[in-house]
């Protein structure tokens, strides 16, 4: 690979170093273009729809960000999403206890994530394989528990989580999304755990030799990511009014995509949580925009995949500098 290294390109590289900023600019540019193409795009309704649509993937991507910064990857998020949703949904069907159902969804998601962490730290299975195995197992469990039948009959209180609005404008999922990002950002920046995640991703051996309890950190972030999958599952169930045991497939692509579009390096040790949120909004904007423009929905997958490749190639290009 060789790129021309003229003056202008060097300048572009300098600006691109702060990928969060450049991604934000790209996002605004996309909005401007879409607004020009469609009068419907820049309405309050549509913008709030975009944030709403971002919530499901964005929340998963927040957990995925910490994992990728640590040098790992979680391919099982879509399956954990479905499995934890089914477990909570079945509990709700049996007991009609909303609180217990929500807690069960979150806890079960966290548990499956912790099992990922166990595979990686205790059995020393590489994250890619451990979570690939979990992708199969959690999906199978979701289908076994639900006997393959979607769960219906969620109460209005449950549905409010996905469809309610604060002050009649701001969707509840948007609020949850922002809260999640505030918390995960806080963890990444102000806690020892967050610092250790960066250190492990940068050089696990050096982190170990500095006295960091690597196994505990890895376990915590995979469990945390599982828990966020559960939370995301609750929101989707509440929006759709049903829990699908086959739901969430392909979400790993979207979640990992949001992380890398945000500029977090798959090599570990570099990246920021907020950039992932921007990445997730970019992904939603692409889907939303193609929709509005009347492009065949299947093209969304193609475009989304291409954007991910582009984002990583930009990362590689900067690395060469």
């Amino acid at each position: 690979m060789s790129f021309p290294t003229s003056e202008s390109l060097i300048k572009v590289r300098g600006v691109l170093n702060n990928q969060a900023v450049s991604m934000l600019l790209i996002l605004f540019a996309m909005w401007v273009v879409l607004a020009l193409l469609s009068p419907y795009f820049f309405t309050v309704g549509n913008i709030s729809e975009i944030t709403l649509q971002t919530a499901v993937i964005g929340i998963i991507a927040a957990g995925q960000t910490l994992i990728i910064i640590s040098g790992g990857i979680d391919l099982s998020v879509g399956s954990i999403f479905a499995c934890s949703g089914v477990v909570g949904g079945l509990l709700f069907q049996g007991t009609s206890n909303l609180f217990a159902a929500l807690i069960a969804t979150l806890v079960f998601g966290g548990l499956l994530g912790a099992v990922n962490g166990f595979f990686i730290t205790r059995l020393r299975v590489p994250p890619f394989i451990a979570t690939l195995g979990m992708l199969g197992m959690a999906r199978g469990l979701a289908l076994i528990f639900s006997r393959g039948i979607p769960i219906f009959g969620l109460s209005p209180e449950y549905l409010w989580i996905g469809q309610g609005k604060i002050f009649e404008v701001i969707p509840v999922p948007t609020i949850i999304l922002l809260l999640v990002y505030a918390i995960v950002f806080g963890i990444s920046r102000y806690t020892r755990l967050g610092r250790f995640v960066y250190a492990i991703g940068s050089n696990a051996e050096a982190a170990l030799l500095s006295g960091i309890n690597i196994k505990w950190v890895i376990l915590a972030i995979y469990a945390g990511c599982g828990l966020l999958c559960g939370l995301s599952s609750i929101i989707e169930a509440a929006r759709l009014g049903t829990i699908q045991p086959a739901g969430g497939s392909g979400y790993e692509l979207l979640a990992i995509g949001a992380v890398v579009i945000g500029g977090t390096s798959l090599f570990g040790g570099e990246g920021t949580v907020i950039a992932t949120l921007i990445g997730a909004i970019i992904e939603t904007t692409i889907r939303n925009g193609l929709n509005i423009l009347g492009v065949n929905a299947f093209w969304q997958y193609v475009v989304n995949g291409a954007v991910i490749i582009a984002a990583v190639s930009v990362d590689q290009w900067k690395r060469q500098a």
Binding site: Y198, A199, S202, N203, E205, A206, A207, L209, E270
Partner: peptide
């Protein structure tokens, strides 16, 4: 480099 430092931190 490989054991003492987190180079990109």
């Amino acid at each position: 480099d490989s054991q003492g430092l987190c180079l990109n931190l």
